[in-house]
Design a protein around this nucleic acid. Structure first.
Lengths: 215, 215, 215, 215
DNA sequence: AATGAATGAGTTTTCATTCAT
DNA sequence: CATGAATGAAAACTCATTCAT
């Protein structure tokens, strides 16, 4: 008597799976509506789970957002790091990194948006975000430094960092543009960014263009 | 005895004055705490006026934010447009525009932050912001196009636009960095940006550097 | 120098005129939006005058509403009283009263609505309104009593009052219906009400009908 | 010592129970103070629950009011419909309907007031209310039509509707009066209304009276 | 006589978060 | 493990009303 009429077939999933469902829902909500406008009710419902479970698994709203940031950020960094092997020449590394970056953005537009567009405005995440971006800047700066030393030249560290910062910033902006233009081709966008970054306006104006050699 | 310490002369100010006070307070609040976290109470108190006046003069919270956007944006665009005269050679125009831009950011760090960092994440202002940025991109694209045609060459419009977009994006990011580093020198930052934009990584790595001629 | 550029031709109207303008605006606002939803700002603007003037002339919002009630109510009572002379036979008095009543409603739909529909729900005006309606009920009851005594019969006062109340209520409801049907003919509505009131359902069902003799 | 005076057994009630408590409190508040003057704070406190629960269960203030309207309206319509069986003669149906109606009003004075007195003035509920009243008018009109056809006569539809409207209006007004006179007897009021409706002023003045046969 | 400037006080509504079951 | 029930706190917005000029 009083046995459960509907078998709980879809319930009692392992914790890891549930967490991913929640993060998926959270990324959707945060990227579409922003950190403040997204509500925990909304996220819980979209994840098909009750609110207390979200709190039990992923903590407060801020922690949840940070968790999203971490997951998407890690995915992106891994994608880029896996592509730009450190033993290649400078331009090849840059090109592969850019291609990986824009490819990732093209495949995870939601993730990208939540990562950069939303997080930047909210103080609590500024540091978190700065750390992640710092890693990228460091990689690019290291790349430049490496190439310079190979030619027997050296540059003040600040200069390097700022130049790297500018390159990363330009890429972010183009990625932002890419996220807003679903029809745009990530590969082409990467090529354009490469042209700007590598050749600069002066060369471009002279008709010099950079083109990917392989592929 | 008990003479009024603050003369009542500051009350009952004319509308135009009050509006500027409110906008000042709003820019402060929005840029420091973000659109959602900033409260109308806070802004009103900071402006030294009661909430209903804010609503009476500048409308809804969203409208208030847009008003901030407009004021700061107009100031910035005017500063840049006034500096980059259209009859100069391309590199000179770019340089002067950049110098004006970073100079402006250095002088109005709050304004810049509210303008770009906060507005980007909030859907309601995306369009407003896109319009403003669009103007900048157009100017830069026009500049490139002008220089190209002068050399008898022509480029597809989309390409131009994307390159211009990247340049603007890089500048924005450096400006962002500038806003977070109060000790940094806007002039130097402009020079660095000019190097990246004009020469590109390739030339920089070869030891070629761009330097302002005048001054 | 600095003479007024626009001559104040429409300003400085005598107080009585201004008050009527305000009452007109107030009746419009109250009847369209209800007592609470109508705002003093709205009324002042519609009257083409500043808010402090409204307060100076007609007092608080409640007092303003009461003033509307008074003006419209007095107009209506006068219209009815002027039509139903006390020396006519009962049916003729009733008919003339009804015709005057529906005629008035037809000409002042706004006034009627503000008078009855809005005032009834708001406690502060219940008494005011009850007084006015009481006068009407008294008149009708007196009419019935007069007719009864003329036939040598007498009825308990309460009975009379309730019957009169029902007649007034039915008229009010029809008037309400009339206010919502701008195309309807007041005269016809009066005839219908007369039929119900005078003959009753029983006679109507038997095919007996009342028709105005004159006209 | 310090044993809990009120057992915590009354907390955490199931939704259905809470909803009824809220509706009870809302009907009380709305009918006593009017739609606008009644505050959600007040209602929540009177229901012994916090405001957010009211919003969670019954929505917006307007929706809450409509919910009240629905509950009370349904109760009333059911009471009347259950009493006036369609196979009785016209006068008997009318009488039973009126008796049920006034009986209901006598038992739920609060409900009646909120239903008709408050709702009529507020635009947002006009339609809701018109629908409900429309049903009553239709029933009465159908009754008259039925009786007429049984006697081989026919009447224009508009005429019927308006007469029915007048009868309903008269009843509403008497009910209104009843709500304001707690000492009055619903049964007697029904009898009076029946006299007015069925016999008309003419017959009443001639000393003809209608009396309930049964009971 | 007339008004722009100003506000205290209140309202609806939302949301992150936690119990008790 | 899971959730329906519950709330404290705060935010946006409005409005009748008054002062100082």
């Amino acid at each position: 008597m009083s046995s459960p009429p509907t078998p709980p077939a879809f319930r009692r999933l392992p914790r890891a799976v549930r967490e991913q469902q929640m993060l998926d829902a959270a990324v959707r909500a945060f990227s579409r509506r922003g950190f403040h406008a997204a509500s925990m009710d909304e996220i819980a419902e979209d994840a098909g789970i009750s609110k207390p479970m979200v709190y039990a698994y992923l903590g407060t709203k801020e922690e949840l957002f940070v968790a999203c940031l971490h997951r998407e950020g890690t995915r992106m960094v891994e994608a880029i790091a896996g592509a730009a092997a450190p033993d290649l020449p400078a331009d090849e590394r840059l090109w592969r990194g850019l291609r990986a970056f824009f490819g990732f953005v093209g495949r995870h537009r939601d993730g990208w948006v939540v990562l950069y567009r939303q997080a930047r405005g909210e103080q609590p995440f500024a540091r978190e975000l700065a750390t992640m971006r710092g890693k990228l800047v460091e990689v690019v700066a290291g790349m430049l430094d490496h190439a310079l030393r190979a030619r027997g030249r050296e540059v003040r560290e600040t200069d390097l960092e700022v130049v790297a910062y500018a390159l990363v910033g330009a890429s972010e902006s183009l990625a932002d543009w890419l996220a807003d233009h679903p029809e745009a081709d990530p590969e082409k966008t990467a090529t354009r960014m490469m042209n700007v970054a590598w050749l600069g306006a002066d060369q471009l104006l002279r008709g010099i263009t950079w083109r990917p050699t392989d592929r």
